[in-house]
Design a protein around this nucleic acid. Structure first.
Lengths: 345, 345
DNA sequence: CTGTTAGCGCGTTCAC
DNA sequence: GTGAACGCGCTAACAG
């Protein structure tokens, strides 16, 4: 194959020369300016075609001082929650003619910090954030530069932020009430309070609801950890060995619920006949025929779509009231919960 | 909260004025140029700090004619394969100081086309592609603009492309050989030839290996479809009803394998005692304690890392030979395969 | 070691 | 309707 040295990318000036007009006119055609004689417009269009001209968005961004790019900061894009969020954002942004600049922090503060700086450097028009860290200093950088920021799924400390989150406490309440209504009284909770503020709220909500319904909170069947099978199995085993074993489990995430289900089955119990399980999050996997998990949905799709939509509003109209939305969760009843069995296990 | 009108973002000129030097000097400090008097450097650094200056990457890209941005085109970022790929790319690119511009096509040609144009418009330095479509015209646009392109996991038609793919046929061979060595002779294949070229090759590889090992290919237990449980269950049911029922299944994707496993178990058989199953892809889920799937790994991580690395090479050194790498797959033996049981089912 | 000058490619006055 | 001139913020010659 011969190496063909291609001409450099054509510019508006090249197009102008070819069409025999000024560069300004080319720009006007490109931007759909109306008062142009039909024949000059056609000449310009023809030259654009022939030169394979593609407008340089970099230059355009520079002069317009707008990039039509939204930055998105996620925890870890290989986590299904964030991946689905990314998908929704990319699709919706494309419709509104915005580009999306995604970065994941891999739960590491340095990366988070670097991402923020990259976004500032690249002059994104706005930033969507779904992962925050204790040291939030670099978020302040965004505010310094007056870049609109919208949080979703996480609630930062300051009260003047824009955010869309789920009512996590209410979600736990739905789960507890559902189990109570099915006749369960001994409920085990798998919490994960240290991971994110939202997880902490699920835990808090659980405690509050248990009190509200006057159900006993048994510290011995309260798990505080992660979602790794190797941690969860021993906990479940111990819990079910007890004379006053729980008849059901509430978890902080669907991943935990799946691990619980696996453990329960491995220990020879039937779900939901012997043991009921309620997850939290309604990840895609939870509806898999293998699991059919009863779980609390946090309306992820609505949340993400709304977050993008509102951010674009902030970007395009700077004078806006802070946007603060709390979405109500919903209980998705599938096949892992049933009425409490009579005899204890 | 009072509305504070912030000064506009500082530029190198503002920094220069504040530090009492020329704008060029500021630029030199920014770029780590060496021959600068220590005290002027410090003065500049101080001014940068005080003005909260952040270099405008847009302007920098414009003059350097490089964006240090790699475009990535994926099928659907909420698919775990692509999500994991995205994660690897973002992480590795960050180390090399490149930004990543991700777009997913949602398997839709128009979106693919639009993504390519966006990438060209934004003047990415190179493009990584893991999803292609029959009408590839827009890929040619990239070539016109001399933008280096690296394919991974998919093999486009032209022979002069750069690509890194897995040896899919060899993967099927590993699966067939493994089952043959365990004593199986009646093997059912769940293919999905129409989806991607790589899936077609897995199917082809299966046929070739069966011939090579002189095993009978039974068209009646050859599934050609998707990975939806509702399609797979009836197939498995029919297959296992037969007098000469297969004793094992090979699938094109792990998702299919999981659906098969579920079906087999629902039909009252034990995996792997009664029926063996081999997946393809080694997605994260396949190692889940619930599944423990024996599967063919296509070395995704190596593939993705190498793709990025080689693309950056192409970007930074234009004169390069085409890069064409075929990775050898590996059989991951977990818990869904065992020796063929004696009595037929 | 540092400053001057000239663009990078485009949109935007302001004239005509 | 159209064009000339300017500037967005920065790097890259070329002087000194």
């Amino acid at each position: 194959v011969r190496v063909i040295y291609m001409k450099k990318k054509a510019t508006t000036i090249d197009v102008a020369r070819k069409a025999g007009v000024s560069q300004t006119t080319v720009s006007r055609v490109l931007n759909g300016y109306s008062h142009i004689k039909e024949e000059t417009r056609e000449a310009v269009l023809k030259a654009i075609e022939e030169l394979e001209f593609s407008p340089n968005e970099i230059a355009r961004s520079m002069v317009k001082q707008k990039t039509r790019t939204i930055g998105v900061i996620l925890g870890d894009i290989s986590n299904p929650f964030y991946a689905e969020a990314a998908n929704i954002i990319i699709t919706n942004a494309r419709e509104k003619n915005y580009d999306v600049f995604i970065s994941d922090t891999d739960y590491c503060y340095d990366a988070f910090d670097k991402n923020i700086r990259t976004m500032i450097g690249n002059r994104v028009d706005g930033v969507l954030i779904a992962a925050i860290y204790k040291k939030e200093s670099s978020i302040n950088e965004l505010f310094k530069y007056k870049i609109p920021v919208m949080f979703f799924n996480v609630l930062p400390h300051g009260k003047e932020h824009n955010y869309i989150i789920a009512n996590n406490k209410r979600g736990s309440d739905l789960a507890v009430k559902h189990l109570k209504d099915l006749g369960h009284t001994k409920i085990s909770m798998l919490s994960y309070p240290s991971k994110y503020p939202s997880y902490y709220l699920r835990y808090q909500g659980f405690l509050e609801s248990m009190k509200k319904y006057m159900l006993p909170i048994d510290e011995d069947v309260l798990f505080k950890g992660g979602y790794i099978y190797e941690e969860i199995y021993p906990f479940v085993k111990e819990a079910l060995k007890r004379s006053d074993a729980p008849t059901c489990f509430i978890t902080t995430t669907d991943q935990q619920a799946i691990a619980v289900m696996d453990s329960v089955k491995k220990l020879g119990f039937n779900v939901p006949k012997d043991i009921s399980i309620v997850g939290f999050g309604n990840i895609e996997l939870s509806s898999h025929p293998y699991f059919e998990l009863t779980t609390v949905s946090i309306q992820k799709k609505t949340m993400v779509q709304l977050a993008l939509e509102k951010l674009i509003l902030l970007v395009e109209d700077d004078q806006q009231e802070p946007i603060q939305i709390v979405l109500e969760p919903e209980l998705i009843i599938r096949k892992t919960t049933s009425t409490r069995r009579k005899k204890s296990i």
